[in-house]
Design a binder for these strands. Structure first.
Length: 506
RNA sequence: GCCUCAUUAGCUCAGUUGGUUAGAGCGACGGACUGUUAAUCCGCAGGUCCCAGGUUCGAGUCCUGGAUGGGGCGCCA
């Protein structure tokens, strides 16, 4: 039977066989410390010259990083180790000895790592992120399945742009132009009329030339659609759903989130009620006309700017101190290296903080001058969510700026019943959705207003002609949700092989 | 599409007002050390300073254009 590192705790003092890769190696005379990884975890394995013989010892000593091996040894408890266990090795079979593995155990730049993505996935942080992704996907399915939703797959080739706004990838479909799907929602609506409650879970494609930390050209979206649900039922569903996925992930990914140094306290706050604001109320807060807990956005942002500046000063001081210590001499080499590396890290942090320093005044300006009636920009979202520590749902948007299929507020037709959920900690829009228009005349009017080809929406109008009912739904961006849960600076690390502007390989 | 910052060894980065033969650490390689946790110590090798022009006696450094990348805006999940 095969043994995996994650199961070592059940095998204490017995002899097991592990198969994996040499993640790191330290050597001393007569002893080799191998850090083995097998996909399920990491474990230190000790090779003793006296146990294994000189010839074998030399061949193990020559193993490069990421060499593949099979080893057999005794499981010994050792509190110093990550998993609490280590292996005292009896024998090693080398499957492949490899050398010159490109990714070293140190800081690397993002461009280099993205070029090495196929190998980078083996690194600890990436390993942890991919495991969280797996748990999040599983929790999403559990939520909808327990709530009686039917999973459906929407087509990926479409003949039209669903909302007519975003840039799509064009392909050739037997001589006809076809577009890669930017949303499965319209098809979801059809299926919801058949099944009651459905959800799609599939890839989505947008050819926007966006170079930001929250855009991908290819990403995964979850789109539930519910018959007999209005905007408020929809918000209840969003809230229950996000709360469930976050709490299940926190419960099932303790080790992974710890490895990512993710403070889960802020995730646990999703147990509290989410903030619900109309567009009007949100705009008043963004513009600084309305206070939240006694403070305006302008005050909070100005304080953030001062804080950023003092952090930069603090880091510069820290660097100067370390440089002076090194220059003074007499420091051990290991300590010098540690300090040099810390200086590098601090410098990188300063670069990021300096970007914030440049951005915050722009955001402040943009928030102050926000024009009522416009859609929120990324910075407006950041500014708004900065004021709360739970997700914020903004609903009832000016209908002109929202998609054609959103229902008007019957009490005030100026507003469409769309809802966006903004994640805290600056992550912004993670969910977009709303109640769907059921009035056929209004829909036709909207399709014309948006200058969309009527013939491709004929089938969609049929949904209003035959047993039309109030219904609502939303779309959740998996990678954006993951970036927030893992507190990553960019969505590109949340998907195994990101496709984005300027990145098609590997 | 616009704005902004960057590009120097395999990797992460220094490089002074423009001045001789461009540096460090890590990694790789060779050696030492029997419990290491980014091991440590000694040694050794490693360069199209992103590309193309220009200014200058002289350019890694200054100027112009381009390429690539980071970030922001717009657009969006």
């Amino acid at each position: 039977m095969k043994t995996y590192i994650k199961d070592l705790s059940t095998q204490q003092d017995s002899v097991v066989t592990l198969q994996g890769w040499v993640q790191n190696k330290r050597e001393s005379k007569g002893l080799i410390f191998l850090i083995l990884r097998d996909g399920s975890g990491f474990c230190q394995c000790i090779v003793d010259l006296g146990n294994i013989g000189e010839e074998k010892f030399a061949s193990i000593s020559a193993l490069g990083q990421e060499s593949s091996i099979t080893l057999t040894g005794k499981v010994v408890a050792d509190t110093r180790q990550i998993g609490g266990f280590e292996i005292h090795v009896d024998s090693v079979d080398i499957i492949q000895n490899c050398t010159d593995y490109p990714i070293a155990n140190k800081e690397h730049g993002i461009e280099f790592l993205m070029d090495q993505r196929h190998l980078w996935l083996r690194s600890k942080r990436q390993w942890a992120i991919m495991r969280v992704r797996n748990q999040v996907i599983f929790a999403i399915h559990r939520f909808f399945q327990k709530e009686g939703f039917i999973q459906m797959d929407a087509p990926i080739f479409t003949g039209n742009a669903a909302e007519g706004t975003t840039d799509l990838f064009e392909t050739d479909f037997y001589g006809q132009p076809a577009y890669l799907s930017q949303s499965g929602q319209l098809y979801g609506e059809a299926m919801a009329m058949a099944m009651g409650k459905i959800y799609t879970f599939g890839p989505t494609f947008r050819s926007e030339k966006s170079k930001t930390r929250r855009h991908l050209s290819e990403f995964w979206m979850i789109e539930p659609e519910m018959a007999f649900h209005d905007i408020f039922d929809n918000m209840d569903c969003i809230e229950d759903f996000v709360r469930f996925v976050v709490s299940e992930t926190v419960a099932n990914c303790k080790m992974e989130l710890e490895l990512l140094e993710r403070d889960t306290a802020s995730l646990e706050k999703t147990a509290n009620p989410f903030v619900r604001l109309t567009y009007d109320a949100a705009v008043a807060i963004i513009k600084g006309e309305e206070k939240v807990e006694g403070k305006t956005t302008i005050e909070v942002l100005e304080a953030d700017l001062i804080e950023t500046k003092s952090q930069i000063e603090g880091l510069k001081k820290d660097i100067a101190e370390r440089e002076a210590l090194i220059a003074a001499g007499g420091m051990k080499k290991g300590k010098v290296n540690f300090n040099l590396n810390t200086i590098d890290k601090n410098k990188n942090q300063i670069k990021q903080l300096e970007e914030d320093e440049r951005n915050i005044p722009q955001w402040l300006e943009s928030a102050k001058n926000f024009t009522y009636g416009e859609d929120f920009g990324g910075s407006d979202e950041t500014v708004l969510t900065r004021m709360f520590d739970v997700p914020v749902m903004v609903y009832d948007w000016p209908h002109e700026i929202k998609a054609f299929y959103l229902k008007r507020n019957p009490e005030n037709p100026k507003f469409a019943r769309g809802v966006d959920m903004l994640a805290p900690e600056g992550y912004g829009e993670v969910v977009g959705g709303g109640e769907r228009e059921t009035n056929e005349e209004l829909l036709i009017e909207k399709i014309n207003e948006h200058k969309l080809p009527m013939d491709v929406f004929e089938w969609y109008l049929d949904l209003r002609r035959f047993g039309s009912v109030p219904h609502a739904g939303f779309g959740l961006g998996l990678e954006r949700l993951l970036a927030w849960i893992c507190k990553l600076p960019h969505v590109r690390e949340t998907i195994p092989f990101p496709r984005m502007y300027g990145r098609l390989k590997p």
